[in-house]
Design a protein around this nucleic acid. Structure first.
Lengths: 102, 102
DNA sequence: CCTGTTGCTACGTATTATGTAGCATAAATA
DNA sequence: TATTTATGCTACATAATACGTAGCAACAGG
């Protein structure tokens, strides 16, 4: 079904949707309830949050087992690991972009 | 102005906008014209492309010097470097998600 | 039975992206 | 010189997406 599309393209599509990266980030320290996630994500609307959680569940990045709340799968954690260097890059980026105003 | 917001949050916001990651990716091998970029990005509308290019230029990730076309800045290239491991992760991800159907 | 918490849906409004047309500039061609 | 071609981009109407608010059904105490 999705054989023709490269994996990287699909995941970039998914990660480009609003709140997706943020949700993964918020789940970094363990499970959260639906409403906890909602608050953490600047009170994102439940409609959108639920849509995103569905996407993330079918993408096997997030799970929701009974009484455990939403939490990352192993695959989801690995993605966080991949993203880790982005933090350092972002610091440098902010320095550069603030040279203009400061 | 943006002192209160962490760098990582800002960049995640930017990268979560449609076509932003794709545009950076398409510029990986050097300069492209506006219309080349447009074709490369599945004929994204010029309105949107121009909006994204404005964002990317003010974020110092893309430049557009005379007769050189659009191309990544050093900062932009560094971001690509950060993203490189995503390719390998995406392969593993696709294997996992295709276990279900195949 | 009442209250609180949970995950989630409904639905109208606002924001964002799309598609198509086309303009202004500059270089190449006839 | 007149015409074509390519460039970067704007205008604007429509479609898709996200938001905000209200509220429901299931469950757990008290």
């Amino acid at each position: 079904m999705s054989e023709t599309r490269p994996a990287i393209a699909e995941i970039v599509d998914l990660l480009s949707k609003k709140w997706v990266m943020r949700i993964i980030w918020e789940l970094r320290d363990g499970a959260m309830t639906f409403r906890e996630l909602q608050e953490a994500c600047e009170s994102v609307s439940p409609t959108t949050l639920n849509q995103r959680l569905k996407l993330l569940r079918t993408a096997l990045l997030v799970q929701n087992e009974k009484d455990q709340g939403y939490h990352l799968t192993d695959l989801g954690y690995d993605l966080l690991v991949v993203y880790r260097p982005l933090g350092a890059w972002a610091e440098r980026w902010q320095e550069q972009t603030q040279k203009k105003t400061t």
